[in-house]
Nucleic acid binder design. Sequence first.
DNA 1: ATATTTTTGGACAGTCTTGTCTAATATGTC
DNA 2: GACATATTAGACAAGACTGTCCAAAAATAT
Lengths: 233, 233
Amino acid sequence: MFFMHVINATDRLPTRGHAAKRLSILEAGARVFCREGYTGANIDMIAAEAGVSRQTVYNHYGDKDKLFAAVVTEITQRCNARSFEVLSTFPDQPEDLEKELVAFAMRLTQKCLCDEDGKYLRKLIQSEGERHPHLFAGWRTEGPGKVWSALAARFARLAYAGHLELDDPDVAARQFVALVNAELHIPALFGEKLENDRLQEVTARAVKTFLRAYRRNGKEGEETTRVGRALPA
Amino acid sequence: MFFMHVINATDRLPTRGHAAKRLSILEAGARVFCREGYTGANIDMIAAEAGVSRQTVYNHYGDKDKLFAAVVTEITQRCNARSFEVLSTFPDQPEDLEKELVAFAMRLTQKCLCDEDGKYLRKLIQSEGERHPHLFAGWRTEGPGKVWSALAARFARLAYAGHLELDDPDVAARQFVALVNAELHIPALFGEKLENDRLQEVTARAVKTFLRAYRRNGKEGEETTRVGRALPA
DNA sequence: ATATTTTTGGACAGTCTTGTCTAATATGTC
DNA sequence: GACATATTAGACAAGACTGTCCAAAAATAT
């Protein structure tokens, strides 16, 4: 009983206000580190943006390095979780494969790559990936590593069900992602976002190309994927 | 005559030693800015790496901002020039399209994306693109802007000659680049380079997929691009 | 050889940042 | 209300960096 009390007093999660400030600092840290880079960010900026005093930042996270590491860990987890969430909406039993793949690709883009967390993670890696690769080792294995192989498994299933024709599901998965993101890289470098219409358009074209390469011959809907094709009667 | 002399004394490029130091500072600046980011880089580091005194850096470039701008301009020009050099080796009259496209893609990757200047430019844009987009406006229009449309023109020519079947050459060009670079992004984030064998392999697969999607129906070599395909007799 | 330009090293002020410390205040619990 | 814990503002020392100034030394041109 008194033991419980001791445990509660020391191990229990901080009180509501406490936890709220902690989170607020983390969010502000993500924003500022992302905006200014690790070296360019300073604690006062983060404290101000979080609406707390500088000392509170130090109370919670110790120093700049530890705060950065905490930000990386948190954002990584969020992004990974989001990725698997989206992955679970993959069209396993498609009625209209092209349409459903486009919708899936749009979810992937909007919820994982073009959202705030996705942008933060990208910039954090860009600014510190080369200097501190260990900070992102977890992301590499748990993030792209697992997402891609899970995606490959979904494609393999589509192939087994006769919808696709693949040499190597892993290659196909990476190429799918590459095609879908083709037009995003440069705008992302300058903090720009594609409008929704444009995103829809480039995604549709990416999927179309993917299916041209990988759709099983003689399957339905082929004439929509290759314009002006001269089919042998 | 005396007029010539005046022109020479004021307008001529600096003497050899002078120019050599100027260049050395620029190269060192590129390395250090790339390694440390704009904020993280400091003038003493650059001076030391260039083998000159700090004052000399200020004599040549005025201040940190101007030095950074000069580095960006120089590296941009080099990268653009290199891109068009490689572009001029595009296989316009291919005998073995797949093989020649793979070779072309390898040149593009190795000479433009994976070389030192390519890496510098990428990191410079990553660290300062969002904060100072105007510094890279020239790159966007003269670099990817023109390279892609030139590449699209080459693909259009291949289509006109009956080798390819394209809806939109611009889309095809961007997708080609995206496929070829699919595997490079993540290693690049951590300063890693793909070994040549691996690069060759992923490039071959990218081109294979590209041709599966865009090779003209009934053209030669199709059976090599689609494994296990069931052709209608 | 002499005059001119360039480079050097060092000192310097001013600014910014990190991380610590303290005393006062706020917040929440019992 | 009393008590413990969290938070705040501000001062502070130590260090780093920028950009300037200067006088001596070196390189270059005439």
